[in-house]
Design a protein around this nucleic acid. Structure first.
Length: 280
DNA sequence: CAATATACCTGGATGC
DNA sequence: TGCATCCAGGTATATT
């Protein structure tokens, strides 16, 4: 159920246990995910390889092999990565299992199968990564996430600012929950046409986006996070939601009743007092 | 081109 | 208890 913080928490949790390990065996399920599981490439490029490190771009995890081949994992809506002893019983919806040289197994479980598994072959990794990265938006913690760039992206756009923040081709990693939360923190109404925002308002959005995402990462994300099995920590950030899921409850800042509406098919929460309606 | 609708899936919550 | 309905954290593609 991952947005950027949950993916980053997963990356950090897996980094030490996986770095330097060799993948002995790979097993996959018969089901397809959002795309087919590339089992031939998994066998050719990932099996028997040593894991060098794990990176994140947008909501994608990039498991870099010592060979430079890269295993790309997207968790979709319901994807989870778990690390557990090989003899642990299989769960329903386990779709990919990587057996490591220490007897632990990394398992990708995804009930809705909106996740994706891809492999960048060692000999094509630079081209694959470039093509991939061009389709992804600005990283919220990156140097290019600036008021100037956001003003430029939003110019002439009538779409609501929340839609722009969630457009992964423009901005990476901000999903529905955190879009709601950061707009509340920035005191900007989610329906405000993106092109109407000032540099100062974009500056607030940037600052609050980083604050909200960073706080969520430090709280372990918002997921029921069993990605490390018994040794993992649950995510606690959901306890800090200020608007998400709080329809009709009093605003924590001003006491007004919070409002829920639907925007582009997604649940949208705001405080009509702290986030005044945009001029029309 | 920009914006929205739809499709992809399962499972949990809710209501009758 | 059973059944129908709605809703869910994402993204690619089709359609206006």
């Amino acid at each position: 159920m991952p947005e950027l913080p949950e993916v980053e928490v997963t990356r950090r949790g897996l980094l030490a246990p996986l770095t330097g390990r060799t993948i002995h065996q790979i097993t996959w399920s018969v089901h397809r995910l959002r795309t087919e599981i590339p089992h031939r490439l998994l066998e050719e490029q990932i099996a028997r390889q040593q894991i060098r490190t794990i990176d994140r771009r947008a909501k994608y995890l990039l498991l870099r092999m010592a060979s430079d081949a890269t295993l790309v994992i997207h968790l979709g809506m319901t994807g989870k990565l778990g690390l557990m002893p090989q003899e642990t019983g299989r769960h329903k919806h386990d779709h990919l299992l990587l057996l490591l040289d220490n007897g632990l197994e990394l398992r990708f479980n995804d009930s809705r199968r909106f996740g994706t598994i891809a492999v960048w072959p060692a000999e094509h990794v630079i081209a694959c990564e470039q093509a991939f990265s061009e389709k992804e938006g600005l990283e919220p913690f990156g140097d290019e996430f600036t008021p100037e760039n956001l003003l430029r992206l939003a110019r002439n756009r009538q779409a609501p600012v929340k839609s722009l923040l969630m457009n992964a081709r423009l901005i990476a990693g901000i999903g529905n929950i955190y879009a709601n939360e950061l707009l509340f923190a920035a005191r900007i109404h989610p329906l405000t046409p993106a092109g109407q925002l000032s540099a100062l308002q974009w500056q607030r959005i940037i600052a609050e986006a980083r604050q909200v995402l960073q706080t969520a990462i430090e709280a372990g994300g918002s997921t029921i996070s069993d990605f490390l099995g018994a040794s993992g920590h649950p995510g606690y950030f959901q306890l800090q939601f200020k608007v998400y899921g709080r329809k009709d409850l009093p605003c924590l800042m001003c006491g007004h009743h919070l409002v829920k509406t639907t925007l582009a098919g997604r649940a949208t929460y705001y405080c009509p007092s702290c986030q005044p309606a945009p001029r029309t």
